[in-house]
Amino acid sequence: MSEDETRKHHYIPVFYLKKWLSKNNAKNDSLTITEFQKTPAGVKYKYKTPAQTAYGIDLYRRDDLPQSIRDVLEKKVMSIIDNEASIIHEALLENKIPNNTHDRSVWARFIMSIIHRNPERVYDLTHSFEKSMQMVSEDIRKNYGKYRNDTNPHSYQELEKQLDPFQNGYDFSLLLSNLMNDREFGNVLEHNPI
């Protein structure tokens, strides 16, 4: 797989898009998806393969993480969700309803991931998270004397030196992963027939 291919983070997984393939062009026999795009000039369409659509370059990449794990959301969260869900998806297409907790959890997690993984949602979550972290940091900086206890450094500047520069990246990755694994919403999906 080329570097460009690994940078394509699909917000609608390829396995799911494959089920929408059709022969769209009388000039050739290839199966494609019709991708519609709203432009100032009107709605335009293109024929694409599942790998060529519904992705963002580095959509889940976190530059506030160490280099070796910047793609952790794509490689360790989304890919696992998608790989497991693709098996359940095939069963559903054969009218086989998941009848055990594991399979229902896998499908519920996939549905929750679709809600949270699109570019607009990732952008909104990222900016809301960053704004919240700035507000928290500013509050701690202003009120450090009130919050400080005997185990903390004497000044806020000393505290800042001890902070992990990647902490926000870790926290955001955990936030997005937890949203896709929300137990309350998952329980609703898991325990109600499809």
Rank of each mutant, 00 (worst) to 15 (best):
E90A: 13
I81P: 01
Q167S: 12
E94M: 15
I12P: 01
P165D: 02
A41L: 12
I12R: 02
K146F: 15
F185I: 10
Q162N: 08
M1Y: 02
D182A: 07
V72G: 01
T126H: 07
I115W: 04
K76R: 14
I111H: 00
S113F: 04
E35L: 03
G56L: 07
I80A: 07
N152Q: 14
Y16E: 02
N99S: 15
R121E: 12
A26P: 11
L159N: 02
G56V: 07
S137G: 08
D58N: 12
G145F: 04
S128I: 11
N83W: 01
V72F: 05
L176C: 03
K142D: 09
K146C: 11
F36K: 12
H116V: 02
N143T: 06
D139Y: 08
I114Y: 01
E5Y: 10
S68H: 10
P153R: 07
Y47M: 05
P40D: 13
S79D: 07
D71T: 10
N28H: 14
I115V: 12
D103S: 14
S105I: 04
S22Q: 11
N149A: 08
T32K: 11
W20M: 14
Q134P: 01
I87G: 00
A54C: 14
K18N: 12
G169P: 02
D4C: 10
S79V: 02
Y55L: 06
S105R: 06
P40G: 11
N28Q: 10
D29L: 08
H127Y: 09
P193G: 12
K76D: 13
A51P: 05
A91G: 08
E160H: 06
M112V: 00
H9E: 03
D58M: 04
A85S: 05
L92V: 00
M78W: 01
S128Q: 15
K38H: 09
L92K: 00
E74P: 00
K19Q: 15
R117S: 03
T39E: 13
E130C: 10
N187C: 03
T126D: 08
I87Q: 06
H191E: 15
P193E: 13
R121T: 14
R121C: 09
S155A: 05
E190R: 14
Q52H: 06
Y45I: 06
L59F: 10
H89R: 06
I33K: 03
G169F: 02
M1Q: 05
Q37N: 12
D63N: 13
Y144R: 04
V14P: 03
